[in-house]
Amino acid sequence: MIIVLGLVLAVAALAAGVAGVAANTSDTNKLTSDFSVFDYQFSGTTGELFLIGVVIGVVGGLGAGMVAAGALRSTRTGLATRRELRQSRREAAAAQKDLAKAQVPPKKSPAATPATAPTWSINRFLPKPGKRGAAAK
């Protein structure tokens, strides 16, 4: 519906532009003074001036449309990327949960492990050969 409305408006603007140029091409519609744009002198009728304005408007509209289309495309791409990232994170979290459940060792009862007394040795506190230089560094 919006496309059809846009086409109707474009055809109406084109018809108005053609009518404006055709109605203002006589000698009575000559411009009273020349004007310059970028050091280029223009002279002619008001219809020609109107036509130049229409062309500039169309080019500007196309440029604005291209900017809007590019912004919309990048927005859609960003949304799709963020959606995929969220899905990937959900899948990774689910996989980590499943992996953690599979790796949980069974609990042993405290009565099953024998109680052992700690063993102390004097060798534990003596310097070992070859380790003295490493400790000094």
Rank of each mutant, 00 (worst) to 15 (best):
A117R: 15
A115E: 15
L99W: 08
Q103A: 13
P106A: 15
R86G: 01
E91F: 01
G57F: 07
A102W: 08
T77S: 03
A100C: 02
L79R: 01
G78P: 02
R73H: 01
R73W: 02
A111W: 04
P110F: 04
A117F: 03
V55T: 14
R86F: 10
T116V: 04
G61E: 01
V59K: 05
R90M: 15
L72N: 09
T81S: 10
K97F: 02
A95T: 08
V58Y: 12
L72D: 01
W120G: 07
N123I: 06
R76P: 09
T75F: 10
T81Q: 10
L72P: 00
V58P: 12
E91R: 08
K108N: 02
F50D: 02
Q87L: 02
P114N: 08
A95R: 12
R73Q: 04
L79W: 00
R82F: 04
A102R: 12
I122E: 13
I122W: 08
A112N: 14
I52C: 10
V104M: 13
P118W: 00
D98M: 07
A111T: 03
V55F: 07
K107Q: 08
N123P: 08
L62A: 15
G65F: 02
I52P: 06
A102E: 13
L62W: 04
W120F: 15
G60M: 00
A117P: 14
T75K: 06
A112D: 14
T113L: 07
A100L: 03
L79I: 05
S121E: 02
A80Y: 00
Q96C: 03
P118A: 11
V55E: 07
G61A: 01
L99I: 12
